[in-house]
């Protein structure tokens, strides 16, 4: 029994380290994005350069999300949805990172230039 308990702890540690490694790989090797792309209900509705500071209100059928672009980072700071999960997301700046608001069917993502 003692042995299996030790193995359990080793397993958890290995998993934690691999999670950390995957996270490091993603954050070190993914290039910074150039554009903030807004998709509502599967369609691209807007595209802003990430280098320009901007504050926009994204309207959708079910409500709104406030998108703020500042210092090369995009963040959703306020929204009409009840759960507010999109507000909890950290600011995004790297190619492929996304902020999702399911109730409003709104997806904000960062893309590298073409």
């Amino acid at each position: 029994m003692k042995n299996t308990k030790r193995n359990d702890i080793i397993l958890v540690l290995i998993l934690l380290v691999s999670a950390l490694l995957v996270w490091l790989c993603f954050s070190l090797f993914s290039p910074a994005g150039d554009y903030v792309v807004v998709n509502v209900d599967g369609k691209e509705t807007a595209r802003y350069p990430i280098s320009e500071d901007k504050e926009v209100r994204l309207e959708s059928e079910n409500g709104y999300n406030i998108l703020i672009i500042k210092d090369g980072k995009a963040d959703v700071t306020d929204a009409s949805c009840p759960d507010g999960l999109c507000v909890d997301f950290h600011p995004i700046s790297k190619d492929g990172e996304t902020i999702v608001c399911l109730p409003n069917k709104t997806v904000v993502s960062v893309e590298a230039g073409e």
Binding site: V12, L16, A19, F26, T98
Partner: peptide
């Protein structure tokens, strides 16, 4: 078809643990 979803992998590993 969005490969970027893999970004959630580290968080999901910790969540799974």
């Amino acid at each position: 078809g969005v490969g970027a979803i893999a970004y959630y992998l580290p968080a999901l590993i910790v969540g799974g643990i």
